[in-house]
Design a protein around this nucleic acid. Sequence first.
DNA 1: GGGAAACCGTTATTGACTGTAATCGTTCTT
DNA 2: AAGAACGATTACAGTCAATAACGGTTTCCC
Lengths: 167, 167
Amino acid sequence: MARPRPTSGQPPDAAGLAFLLSQVGAHSAARFAERLEPLGFKPSHAGILRVIRQSDGLSQQALGERLGMFPSRLVGMIDELEKRGLVERRNSPADRRSYALHLTAAGRDALERIGKVSREHQEAVGAALSESERGQLAGFLRRIAAEQGLTPGVHPGFRTTGGGETT
Amino acid sequence: MARPRPTSGQPPDAAGLAFLLSQVGAHSAARFAERLEPLGFKPSHAGILRVIRQSDGLSQQALGERLGMFPSRLVGMIDELEKRGLVERRNSPADRRSYALHLTAAGRDALERIGKVSREHQEAVGAALSESERGQLAGFLRRIAAEQGLTPGVHPGFRTTGGGETT
DNA sequence: GGGAAACCGTTATTGACTGTAATCGTTCTT
DNA sequence: AAGAACGATTACAGTCAATAACGGTTTCCC
């Protein structure tokens, strides 16, 4: 049994739909992070700002839950964002142990810039495809995401993936 | 509790092709890592074994270059694989400062098992799509990968992405 | 030949991050 | 009024990846 070729020959790079998905996905993520860096943001910051704008006044816990990140992780990031004047921690009127998170004008501005970068990035990533093809691709991905139980806005913060190779 | 109402929505989850790519990609990577764990491997191990089989007898440096990982990182991993009897470090006949990496029979066996897991994973990830749709999807991804300058077998080891969120 | 420079693998060190657990004040329940 | 549950924070530990330095080899070139 030296070189049995069960289905093809190997997990051939040629095929590997799953591999392609994570390869292109990782690339997309990396490139986006690069684009964001000059603005002084990391992708997680963008996610936080986006969610806060979407649901103004939510608590850190709610935010963490929605993004799938631990509250302890949020503290530092919101500290940063607040220090940069993009987010406000107002104390919630009803519940004095939680904060109500709000975007400042500068925060909305930053989010605007992030959105611009996002669109550019999206344009660049999809450059190989025609408009209608991009639509089809998005459709496929949405269906996969739904079937796999992924929540629309959220994405799996890379857990202990190992971080090297994938298929 | 107020349901988060989709007030506005700049990079609306509806659109975000780039987001979808990295979301689904990260999910695929994570799930694959999960499937690999019971075998005692991390995705990077799988990548290493795969490349060694493909080009038997290459040096660690060449391996590292092809996978895009630092030689120092490889040392430990190959140590493991060698300790488990899957890989051999023979000294290269021509150049005594480099090793020639080879797969043992057990190593080929392990790779076989990995291949099986890979195919199962691939099947699971693509479950939402028909056979022909999967083909279309793979085609799109391949075109994107090519246009973006990604090397077929390799994938960007998540660099200092920040590791949290992406779009 | 012989010595400097490039090269391979290895080790040690440093630096980010992330998840868990413990802490402190607040709110809810009974 | 007391104890459990809860939100934010801090402290801690474990993991992991990149950088730099170190011995041993080989190659280049004078």
